[in-house]
């Protein structure tokens, strides 16, 4: 009997081990490959079967950021990500507060309309945007890309922040309004209660912009190109520079990991406050 129970238990727990290993493999191996490739010589890179033990070097990084001057793409990426998140916050905060607090006749429809901006495939918007930007002379400018990214991420920002504002009792607004504060001042008074949400929402917007490829590719060129776009330049008729692609990709993941580590506490607080709960 005891042995049977043990076997049963082993079976119940046992299936999780291979499934878990497979999941970890799928998630982690590409990263390991990426990190390893960034430090490989081209010969090791293209070797078949792949070499596991190799002599690491920093040549790929030097080539990308000193010789090919992709450091300007890195700066562009940083500026565009931060500015578009900030712009989304400036526009989105009053919208989220208003949608949370003010009674509107067709609030649900308005909210859906806001969300629907994310439903169209980006390419459907990228081409008209290209034509518009060309007319207004905004092509290949950081400001243009900031605007485009902010327009995309503001809907996510509004939905997230509306949820956080919904979690604050309305009676606080009532008191503030009778005390003589304006709606804007009331919103600023409440801001301290939604700091975790604000940080997380901004983080999501910045990450969206940092990773975004299609719009950046269509709307920018040599001047305002971001890191993901720069990778495209390494796919040449003479072959793909895999080592340099990996070096850029590695640099591109560092800020994301850093930001996530810094904001982890906020993320947990935001999740437990209810908005991000499944």
């Amino acid at each position: 009997m005891r042995i049977r129970n043990l076997l049963l238990r082993a079976w119940r727990v046992g299936w999780r081990v291979p499934v878990g290993c497979a999941l970890v493999f799928v998630c982690v191996v590409p990263y390991v490959w990426l990190w390893a490739s960034a430090f490989k010589y081209r010969v090791d890179m293209l070797a078949s079967p792949p070499v596991l033990l190799f002599r690491p070097h920093l040549g790929n990084f030097v080539e990308v950021f000193w010789e090919r001057r992709f450091d300007s793409n890195l700066t562009n990426s940083l500026i565009v990500a931060l500015c578009s998140a900030a712009l989304a916050a400036v526009v989105g905060l009053p919208a989220a507060y208003g949608l949370s607090r003010i009674q509107l006749r067709h609030k649900r429809q308005v909210l859906f309309l806001i969300l629907s901006t994310r439903m169209a495939p980006p390419i459907a918007l990228a081409l008209p945007l290209y034509v518009i930007y060309r007319e207004f002379g905004c092509l290949d400018t950081r400001a243009g890309l900031v605007l485009a990214h902010a327009a995309f991420s503001v809907s996510l920002f509004i939905w997230l922040m509306k949820g956080f504002f919904d979690g604050i009792p309305r009676s606080i607004d009532d008191v503030a309004l009778t005390d003589g504060f304006s709606h804007l001042r009331t919103m600023l008074l409440l801001l301290r209660s939604v700091v975790p949400g604000l940080v997380v929402s901004c983080l999501f917007c910045a990450l969206f912009s940092w990773n975004e490829f299609l719009l950046a590719m269509v709307l920018t060129g040599r001047e305002a190109g971001t890191l993901p776009v720069s990778i495209l330049g390494l796919v040449t008729p003479r072959g793909t520079y895999w080592g340099q692609v990996a070096a850029i990709a590695l640099v591109a993941t560092v800020p994301v990991v850093l930001l996530a580590a810094i904001a982890r506490g906020y993320l947990v607080r935001a999740m437990t406050s209810g908005v991000l709960k499944a």
């Binding site: 009676s171 606080i172 009532d174 008191v175 503030a176 301290r192 209660s193």
Partner: peptide
């Protein structure tokens, strides 16, 4: 109010 509505 019942929930005091103090500025948090």
């Amino acid at each position: 109010f019942q929930d005091n509505a103090l500025y948090p």
